[in-house]
Simulated assay, not measured.
Amino acid sequence: MGKRTQFTINGLNGLSKKLKDNITLNDVKRIVKTNTTELNSAMQRESQSILTGHWEGSKFVKPTGATKRSITIRFTSGGLSGHTGPQTEYSPYLIRGTRFMAKRDFFLPPLRIQKKKFKSDLERLMK
C-alpha cells in the first residue's frame, strides 16, 4: 500500500511564542476544531460526488458509501491536533489509482483548500 499523506506545520517555536503573547490556547483549539471539521465535511462531500460507482465487466456496481462513512475525525494533544481522513483499506487505491483504475482523488483537493484557510485563520489570530 502507499504512504499516507500528512500535513504538518514547521516552525512551531516562533508561532507558539507569538501565540503566547497574544492569545490563549483555547483560541487555537477552536481554530483547529473548526478547520478539521470543515475538512472532514468537504472530504465527505467530495467523495460522494466523485465515487459514483464502477463497472465490473458488463455490470454497473452502485457505491455503498463505505468510504464516505469511514472519513472520521480524531483530536489529540488536548485539542491542538486534529486528524481526519478515510479509514478503509482500499482508500489509497481510490486516491492514487492503479494501473487498472484511474485515480478518484477526493482527499487532496479539499485538503489544499482547507490548508489555505487554516493558515489564514492562524495568521489572523496572531495579528
Rank of each mutant, 00 (worst) to 15 (best):
G2Y: 12
R4T: 10
Q6F: 15
Q6D: 05
T8G: 07
I9W: 06
I9E: 06
I9K: 10
G11K: 09
G11E: 01
N13S: 11
N13V: 12
N13Q: 11
N13W: 06
G14M: 04
G14Q: 14
G14Y: 10
L15Y: 10
S16R: 08
S16N: 09
K17P: 02
K17H: 05
L19N: 12
D21T: 15
D21P: 03
N22E: 13
N22Q: 09
L25N: 09
L25R: 09
V28Y: 01
R30G: 03
K33Y: 08
K33D: 11
T34R: 15
N35D: 10
N35Q: 12
T36R: 00
T37L: 15
E38Q: 14
S41N: 11
A42W: 08
Q44R: 12
Q44L: 03
R45D: 06
E46P: 02
E46W: 01
E46N: 06
Q48N: 14
S49V: 12
I50M: 08
I50W: 00
I50L: 06
G53E: 02
G53C: 03
H54Y: 14
H54G: 07
H54D: 11
W55Y: 15
E56M: 12
E56I: 13
G57A: 04
S58N: 15
K59R: 14
K59A: 04
K59P: 02
V61Y: 08
P63L: 13
P63I: 08
P63S: 09
A66H: 15
T67Q: 03
R69Q: 09
I71N: 00
I71F: 00
T72M: 12
I73A: 01
R74C: 06
F75K: 10
F75I: 07
T76G: 05
T76Q: 13
G78L: 07
G79Q: 05
L80K: 09
L80G: 04
S81T: 12
G82M: 07
T84G: 00
P86M: 00
T88W: 03
T88E: 11
Y93W: 02
L94N: 03
I95A: 01
I95E: 01
T98M: 01
T98K: 03
R99T: 15
F100T: 15
A102S: 14
A102I: 14
D105Y: 11
F106A: 00
L108P: 07
L111T: 14
K115W: 09
K115R: 14
F118D: 01
K119T: 12
E123F: 07
E123L: 14
R124S: 08
K127I: 00
K127L: 04
K127M: 11
